[in-house]
Design a binder for these strands. Structure first.
Lengths: 147, 147
DNA sequence: TTTTCTGCAAATCCTTTGCATATCC
DNA sequence: GGATATGCAAAGGATTTGCAGAAAA
């Protein structure tokens, strides 16, 4: 996160909380601060461990609840782990996936422009990229009808 | 999976198993057959439930072990759920992620060509796509040095 | 017959939930 | 003061593990 973003982040935090009628508690404040400082896309345990030092009475499930809530209101993003079970695909040919956020259905699709993406040069130099995974997220045709 | 693929799939299964010195057991055979038949990217429970009818003595952890093994040798792909804890990102600006398969580190990157992908027309018609998630998978600079 | 796999049960890891108390607005 | 959040403890779901017997190469 850039410095400009860091400076504004606490204001963003307060605005977002007010918008969604969330109380601004010391726990939430500290959790958000730690998250903004972090560089490694932490999980709840990571945040909990860090905060314990400066806020010993905080509980792990508050961290879980708070991070989930932050993600729900769009203050932060969930980048790994969806709480879902592992799901498998017997088709190993090149294709991509759409996942419906409502019913968790996964639909395959093929698209040339998605297949031919060039990995950024900065990565090719020092990283070995084996796979490019693309997931479209949204609402599927059936769920649109239901809503 | 197309008919051509289905016809070849059992041969593929046997070849891959032989290549990796895996015994061809009834359990593995049935699990792979069910997976090929499936259309919905099933999880271990789904496969287990389906197989129970025709193979009542199979155990759930065999299904878990088998699917993990199949994915390991590249016979099938893991498409959802990484067994990892949920991880969060305080940066809500447009960017993408690289994840190291060795150390699970997640690195942010920015790239215009990735930002400007056009969602396939077939999807725009009947699906509502809210987000395009791109994850590069591979080995990071530090882990390359270690290996 | 030697290696590999399976089934069972127990354990583990991540996460959620119910409830009483404490805190925020 | 009423709504909301927290902490604790217990429960839950998904997955893994250790081990002994069974099946594969």
């Amino acid at each position: 996160m850039t410095n400009a973003h860091k400076q504004n982040s606490m204001a963003l935090f307060r605005d977002k909380c007010r918008q969604h009628n969330l109380s601004i508690t010391p726990q939430r404040t500290v959790i958000y601060q730690e998250l903004v400082k972090s560089k490694n896309h932490p999980d709840s345990e990571d945040i909990y461990r860090t905060i314990k030092n400066i806020f010993p009475e905080i509980s792990l499930d508050t961290v879980y609840r708070t991070l989930a809530k932050f993600a729900e209101i769009g203050l932060i993003h969930l980048v790994e782990g969806y709480g879902e079970a592992k799901r498998y695909d017997p088709d190993t040919n090149n294709h991509h996936h759409f996942r419906c956020s409502e019913c968790n259905k996964i639909v395959d699709f093929h698209d040339d422009s998605f297949d031919n993406l060039k990995v950024p040069k900065a990565f090719q130099k020092s990283f070995k990229v084996v796979n490019v995974k693309i997931i479209l997220e949204g609402t599927c045709d059936e769920c649109i009808k239901k809503l």
